[in-house]
Structures are given as C-alpha cells and as structure tokens.
Design a protein around this nucleic acid. Structure first.
Lengths: 194, 194, 194, 194
DNA sequence: TATGAATGAGGTTTCATTCAT
DNA sequence: CATGAATGAAACCTCATTCAT
C-alpha cells in the first residue's frame, strides 16, 4: 500500500500510544492498552512498530521533535528577544501544549527523562532535541553579552543549559507540584534575569 | 523482634532497592532483582514492605528527604546567602551526591518524577520535600527583595520555583545530556542572576 | 486460468516450501518464510494450497514420490540385482539426492517421519511410498530365496522392511551423526548380507 | 529446598513433557499443554527449565540415555552375542519400551531426529547416545570378524552403523507403517545376516 | 521470624489465515 | 487472479505476591 497509508497508520498508533504512555509511563503501560486505544489489532500494531521499545523511541522522538519545531516557529516570528523573553515564550508554549488536547503531552517528556536514563536511544533523542533548544538559547545569550547585559566572560553554553533548566523545571513542577502559575513564573524569571 | 532489628532490615532492603531502582527505574526493575540484591528472601522483603509500591514510596521518601536534610544542614552553616549562592550550594550538593557512592542516587530523583505522575503517594512526597526547598529559596529571595535587589512586587514563591528549576534542571541535564559542568553552570547562573 | 498456470504456481510454491521446511522442519517454519521464499503473496499461496497442512502434505507427497520414482527408474535399468546391490543402489541414490541441489532434500524425509506421527495424511503418503519400495525389495528377496541364498521359510515382507531400514537408517545417520560414508556403508552392508 | 525435591519436580515435569511431546512433536506442542499435564503452574515449570528449548534438550537426553542404559544392562547380562542376536535384543527392547507405559516413548526418538536437524544441542545428544550403541555393535562385529564370519577387511564402524539402521528403521517403521512384527523382523534379520 | 517454592494473571510478540481492494 | 494489510487467538515467558514449612 501507499506510503500515505503507512504514515496514517503510524500516526494512529502513535496518537494512541502517546495518550496511554502519558497517563502511566512507558513501562507501566501494557501493549494491550496501546493496542486497544489504537483501534487496531495486535498484529497490525506490530506491523508498524517492531517492538514496544521501537514504539517508545518513536513516541519520544515525535513528541520532543514537535515541541522543538513548535518552539522554532514561535521564536522565528519573534526576533531579537531578550533571555527573559525567550524563556517566557518557551514557558508559555509548555503551558499551551499541556492544556491543549485530551492528554497533557508534557507528562510524556517527564517519562522520557526517566526512560532516557535506561534506554540510550531515548537519551540520544533527548540530547538532539534539547541540544537544539540550548543552541537557540545560546544565541539569545550571545546577543545579551554583545549588548553588555552580561559580562564578556559569560559562558554562553552553560547559561543556555540554565535557561533550559528554567523551562524544563517549570514543566516538571507544573505537573508534579501543581501549584505553578505560568504568568507568575514568567514574571519572576524576568525579574530574576533583571 | 526489636525495633532496631526492624530498622536495620528496612535499611538493608532500601539500600539494595535504591541501587536497583536507580539503574533501571521503578517499573523496569523486578522485585526479584531487589530481593537478590538485598541478600534476603522474598518473604523477608515482603515482611518489611507490603508491596512494591510501598517500597517505591519508602525509597523516594528516604532519598528526597535525605537530600533536603543534607541541603538544610549545608545552608544552616552558611547564613545570609544570596540567591545565586544558594542555588550554587544546591548545585554543588547535587554533584557531590551524584558522584559519591557506587550508584548515582540523583537518577532516582528523575525516576521519582515520572513515578510521581502516576502514583499520588510519590507525588505527595515530592511536593513535601521540594516544597521545603522552595520555602528556603523563598526566604533567600525575600532577603533579596528587602535588600532592594529585586522589586518589591517580586513574587517570591514563583521565584523560588524558578530557582528550584535551576537545580532540578541541572541534575536532569547532568544525567541525560552528560555535558554540564557544575562550576561553569554555577558561574553562569551567578552571572544571570547578577 | 489454465491448468498449466496452476501447475506452474504450485511448483513454484512447493519449491520454496521444500527449501524452507527442509531447513527448519514443518512446524518451526512459518508460512511467512514460505511465502517470502516463493516470491508470491500470501493470498496467492493460499489460493493454491488451502492451509499449511495441505502444503505439508503436498510437499511430503512430492518429495517421497519423486524419490520412489527415481529409485524405480534406476532399478528398472539394472535388472536381477542381489539384495546387497539393491540396497547399495538405494544408498547411492540417497547420497546423490542429498548432495544435489541447494538444500538437502533428505532432511525433509526425516521431518516427514515426525510429521507422519501426528498427521495421518502424511503417514498415509509415507505408507504408500515406502510400501512400494518394500514391494520392490520383497521381489529382490524372493529371487534370493528362489536362488537358495535364503531359506524357503524366509519372511520376504519382514526382510524387505529390514532392507528399507538399512536405507532409511543410512539417510538418518548421514544427517544426524554426520560420519557415515556411502561407500564404506555399502561395502559393510554387502559383507553383512554375504 | 533439597536436591531430592528438585529432582522430583524435574522428573514430574519431564514425565508430563515426555507424554505431550511424544503425542504431537516438540514444535507442535505448546508449553501450556506441558504445564497442564505436569500439574504445576507455568511459573513452577519455568523455575526448573529455563526455556522450552532447555526442556526439549533434557527430554531428548533423558529418553535416549535411558534407552542406551537399558540396552547396556540387557547386553551386559547376555555375553558373546552374535550380530543377529545383538540386533534382535535391541529390536526386542524397542518393542518392549514402545508397548510399556501410557505413551509410546519411541515416538519421541523419531521427533528427536527431526529436532536434531535444527537444534545442535539435540543433535549432540543423539550423536553421543547413538555413538555408544554403535560402539557396542562394533565390538560384536569385531568378534564376528575374529571368528571368521566376516572378512578381515570388514569395516566394523560402517557395519555398526548398518546394524543401528536396522534397529532405528524398525522403530520408525513400527510407528509409521504400523505393520512390522517384532518376531518376524528379528527372524528375517537373523536370516539376512546368516 | 525466615524461607523460597509456588502461583497464575498478565507481559510482549508471532502466527496461520482472510478479504477488501 | 493477485495483493498484502489486517486479524486475534495463542505462543512463550515473567512477575509481584503468598504461604506451608
């Protein structure tokens, strides 16, 4: 059959798996749940993904990649942001993604972190995608150095990691602590970064 | 038997479980592995922990609690820290803990985050412990507001969440990305916070 | 379509199945392997053989029948053989068949024996074909009795079974033990039968 | 628990598996059938045999080994047999074993031959046990050579293989053809070997 | 109190076969 | 006539947990 069909089926399965894995994590979710949620048969699911691990990797890749692409798009439309603004945009995006759709996809990211500690393929995906986000933050920080807002000795790469922390930490605390408000968080970050 | 004995056995089991869970995560680690690592029998382990979930909860509680206590102690000895210094101390503590001992306990924290999304008891532990850390950061920030380094409108609670993000994000990126250096990270955070 | 076409397709499938089944046995070989080896689609294979069992039966029938026909031809050209010579010719034929072609078809015979124990249709094929071979051996032995080389009380049918054993046992030991030489075996059999 | 217990359980499982595999062959028999026949749970069976393959190997080993030991004992009590007598004894033993017990164990031997073609461990067992039987037949034949009943040029190893063929071929035809009588077969073999 | 053998439901994956296109 | 995607029962095996000793 056509490649379109293949993509459609993979998407159908990934959508189902995304919801299932987001709810319970990768290891605690059985393939039976994914299969039932997909509306397909076990055989059909295994035609498109050779194993649960392959499915997990595809899910992580898709979710993280989509978020990064999303961030790229938003940032491309908003030029010359300050560090505080860039982080704020990312925080806003996390919030929007979390609240859109039937399941909160940001839960998957947290699950992916744990999975990445035991599955090198998942770790590689995280490194690639988060690396790209850090590269963007690094560019923003470089401009801040050039503008004299940060010392010339400033380590842009380490700073980018710190900004990424602020974003990932927001996503985590939003889910785990449940008491973080996007607007307050953004405002506080802006104040902290001057 | 005596309560001492009971505590000794629980510690023995928790130590074994800590190493096993840190390596592979909670769900992917079998009780058989924990039991073998503990040097006890299945029956003995189940005498002290009624279920795997109870064991997980105890592990998470102990690990997070120990870290918070550790942080308390260090901070109690270093009065009147700035926000940057407080975060720096926490980052340093994460690094020390990670590099001490045969297994990197910070891996457990990341696994606990994922587990907390599906297990309310684990989430409660995280909320309690991370809440305490945030309370400390809030106190630090309050001093910064009083000193005029931050506007009087500054939301200390949200700011404390952001500082916690910087610490947790460091622990995460250290494990998952593998390219974050504690000293550079601390320096960059100090520069970013002025 | 024409009957020729049908025969061509069946042969194409049987050739593929023969190789696959010879390698791994009937039960351990999946239809997927047969289908892939045949170069046809699953649907096509099932158009010509209603089930795996039917395919197995057809394979066994073809292979055993071909061997028996082959033996008939060779024996028809060599009249008035002694028992030792007849067995020797059969042993030679087994060796030639085993060593000709990309896969050793004699492996299929051994697999067919096991299959015959659970599949009456396969057993029936074996009974028919091996029965024919025994009939031929019986004729040879009858001549030996008439020539006075064997007592008149000699049970020709049982003797034929024994001679068949010598041939089948050769095929088996050649495959399973791997240390039987056709020439030595023939010579030893000739000596044993005087 | 004690080693006795372990042996008892293994025997219990092997007995059940023996019956199940004899009926349907190794590949066509599901572990569920073996487990049900054993009266144990799945987990218990897998405590004593790590995999189906390991169980198959243990079954083949036990069955072939028991037959060889049995043959050794019978032959040890009957010294100075002729080749015809030795084969006769073996044929008799095959018949007795086949007819004793609730399932015909000789079926397992035929299944083991097919399995040996795809499973090297099974082939190794067959080589070892049948090799021992051939060694015994070789000793018998050596005596026949020394007694002048066979030429001094006689290849005892090849001759032993031929005698083994007569025994294995009897077992096979008894099962597959169903029309071989032990007494007639033995008499015919005796006549053929003079 | 401690053991570890036993449980059996549930895990992931494969398989012969069908049928809409 | 031919395709190959889809089926879903069944395959092998693991697992958290229990309980007789």
């Amino acid at each position: 059959m056509t490649d379109d069909h293949r993509q459609a089926r993979r998407t159908q399965i990934l959508d189902a798996a995304q919801a299932a894995f987001a709810a319970e994590g990768f290891q605690a979710t059985g393939m039976a749940e994914v299969i039932a949620a997909s509306g397909l048969s076990a055989g059909a699911v295994y035609r498109y993904f050779a194993s649960k691990d392959e499915l997990i990797e595809a899910i992580v890749d898709r979710v993280l990649e989509q978020r990064a692409v999303h961030l790229d798009e938003v940032l491309a439309s908003r030029r010359e942001l300050s560090a505080a603004e860039a982080v704020g945009v990312a925080v806003e995006l996390v919030t929007e993604v979390a609240e859109s759709g039937p399941v909160d996809i940001t839960r998957l990211a947290v699950q992916a972190w744990g999975e990445g500690l035991r599955n090198p393929a998942v770790a590689a995906v995280a490194q690639r995608v988060y690396g790209r986000v850090r590269t963007y933050f690094a560019a923003v920080l470089r401009r801040e150095v050039e503008a004299g807002h940060l010392p010339s000795s400033f380590d842009v790469a380490a700073g980018a990691a710190a900004l990424l922390s602020v974003v990932l930490g927001y996503a985590l605390q939003r889910l785990l602590m449940g008491d973080v408000d996007a607007a307050s968080y953004r405002a506080a970050v802006a104040d902290l970064l001057r």
